[in-house]
């Protein structure tokens, strides 16, 4: 899973780079507009170390933001799973708020909280929270009747068991959504850094943009792609391992 993610990214990145170089060739553009391969490689060598730590900085905020949004999404999703008025209220709120582009709220957050870690964290969390919440709400609000019937009929059903059954039955969906939300959290962090932060790869991209240095931007994109692929690959692998540990028998194999 991990390697598949990386080579899939490499293929996409190479295709994108080839397209750029083809445009450069066809339109006879200078290295200032689209750098050639030697310049790109040279820039890679120069910025690799710095950008690597910048991406790690961004990733740390991303992971923290994602953890917060996962906890919040599960808490609200579990509260909102019932068809009571409170549940309906949570669902309607979630559906309406997620329809609004959260990035547009970023300036308000920066005005109120200033540049720095908290603003980046908040934007990262907010961007991946709502898609996660909708998925968790959808899963938690859908009864698994074939399993739950016995526990309800015999008065054994507790909210913890209900959540466990629904989470277990939708484990693949949940791990896919959580792995997918990593990209959103990363995007949120980079956007926050790009707007007004003072650290992270988004901040480095902003500097490269002001210098119109496409080679640096390409290097930054490469680093972001590799790191997020590794992170997503790890999340997917963990999800698969969790599912195997939780559901598969100790011996033999499932058909």
């Amino acid at each position: 899973m991990l390697f598949r993610r990386i080579y899939q990214f490499l293929i996409v990145y190479c295709i994108g780079l080839t397209c750029l170089l083809a445009i450069k060739k066809i339109l006879v553009l200078s290295d200032y507009v689209i750098p050639g391969i030697p310049l790109i490689l040279d820039t890679f060598g120069q910025v690799f170390r710095g950008y690597f730590f910048d991406v790690l900085n961004t990733l740390s905020v991303t992971i923290l933001g994602q953890i917060i949004s996962i906890i919040m999404a599960f808490a609200v999703g579990i509260l909102g799973r019932k068809s009571s008025w409170a549940g309906s209220f949570v669902k309607v709120m979630a559906y309406n708020i997620q329809a609004y582009p959260i990035v547009a709220l970023a300036p308000i957050i920066f005005i109120l909280l200033g540049d720095g870690f908290i603003s980046r964290l908040l934007i990262a969390s907010m961007i991946c929270y709502f898609p996660l919440l909708l998925s968790v709400l959808g899963i938690m609000a859908s009864p698994v009747k074939d399993i739950e019937h016995f526990y309800i009929a015999t008065g054994r059903m507790r909210w913890q068991l209900e959540v466990k059954i629904r989470a277990f039955e939708n484990l693949s969906k949940l791990t896919t959504v959580i792995a997918g939300s990593a990209t959103l959290a990363m995007a949120g962090t980079i956007v926050a850094e790009f707007i007004a932060a003072n650290a992270g790869i988004g901040y480095s991209i902003r500097i490269a943009l002001y210098q119109s240095d496409l080679a640096r931007i390409l290097a930054a994109l490469f680093m972001i792609g590799i790191v997020i692929s590794v992170y997503q690959g790890i999340l997917e692998t963990l999800g698969a391992q969790l599912k195997t540990k939780w559901s598969a028998p100790k011996e033999g194999e499932l058909l």
Binding site: D146, I147, H149, A153, K164, F168, W246, S247
Partner: peptide, 21 residues
């Protein structure tokens, strides 16, 4: 009321499920 498409959660063995209920 029991019916033929009911399932037990797959997170533990059926022996363990029967002990619990």
């Amino acid at each position: 009321y029991s019916y033929n498409q009911e399932r037990l959660p797959n997170w533990s063995s059926i022996g363990s499920h029967l002990n619990k209920i």
